[in-house]
């Protein structure tokens, strides 16, 4: 019993790393997604092409390849990253590319009349985006962002392959030391599912909060 308690502690330490990776990765992905999503519909062709290039590149190659490239090839160019930094960078850039398309489609889904009304009351383009379009678009983005966050959480498992001691890595350690596969792996599967449930619950509450009083206003 005491032995399992020690191993449980190891797995929980890994869970903390997983949570950190997910939190940093999501924050980074959110910023990247908004920047690339706005760039995608920018007036300036250069920004549009840059965004499309980034989005297609990161959606088109596997997250696994991206992580390995960042971890093994970037140091050869003089950027040495810790496994944690490489993990956050790869996850953020990968999920951010998917998120950018969500941002773009949500902005385009906001009713055209809103934009015209903003022009009519003489708001600048920045003001229109900041106060009129984005608040409405954000509510549309939320459910998909929730799914993306869960994909990111699941993606964190692969950082165990670049020797970051996350939950999956620790489960492997426990398996190697005890020779028991079922207990550590079922434990971490349940923990991953619990974290995913917390994310989807959080996103749903946030959505409920943000849409309060908007019934009938939104189509």
């Amino acid at each position: 019993m005491e032995m399992w308690l020690g191993y449980m502690q190891l797995i929980l330490q890994g869970a903390w790393i997983t949570v950190q990776l997910t939190a940093y990765g999501c924050a980074f992905a959110l910023v990247v997604a908004i920047l690339a999503g706005l760039g995608r519909i920018s007036r300036f062709a250069a920004l549009r092409w840059l965004s499309v290039g980034y989005i297609e590149f990161f959606r088109g190659t596997s997250i696994f390849v991206q992580l390995f490239w960042i971890y093994y090839v970037l140091p050869l160019m003089g950027f040495t990253l810790s496994p944690m930094q490489a993990g956050v960078l790869a996850l953020g850039l990968n999920v951010g590319a998917y998120g950018a398309e969500v941002v773009r489609s949500a902005i385009q889904a906001v009713d055209g009349g809103q934009n015209e009304a903003a022009v009519a009351v003489n708001l600048t383009r920045f003001q229109t985006m900041r106060h009129i379009i984005l608040p409405q678009a954000f509510v549309i983005m939320l459910p998909t962002f929730g799914n993306n966050a869960i994909e990111l959480l699941k993606g964190t498992a692969i950082v165990s392959l670049i020797s970051l001691s996350d939950m999956t890595f620790q489960a492997q350690v426990v398996r190697a030391q005890t020779g028991n596969t079922a207990v550590p792996f079922i434990t971490i599967l349940v923990l991953y599912f619990a974290i995913a449930s917390v994310i989807s619950f959080g996103v749903r509450s946030l959505e409920k909060r943000l849409t309060r009083g908007l019934d009938g206003v939104r189509a």
Binding site: L153, A157, T168, A171, L189
Partner: peptide, 13 residues
């Protein structure tokens, strides 16, 4: 459950 957990862990399992 399967959608909420990583494929890598499922493969190991």
């Amino acid at each position: 459950f399967v959608r909420g957990t990583p494929l890598l862990v499922q493969l190991y399992f």
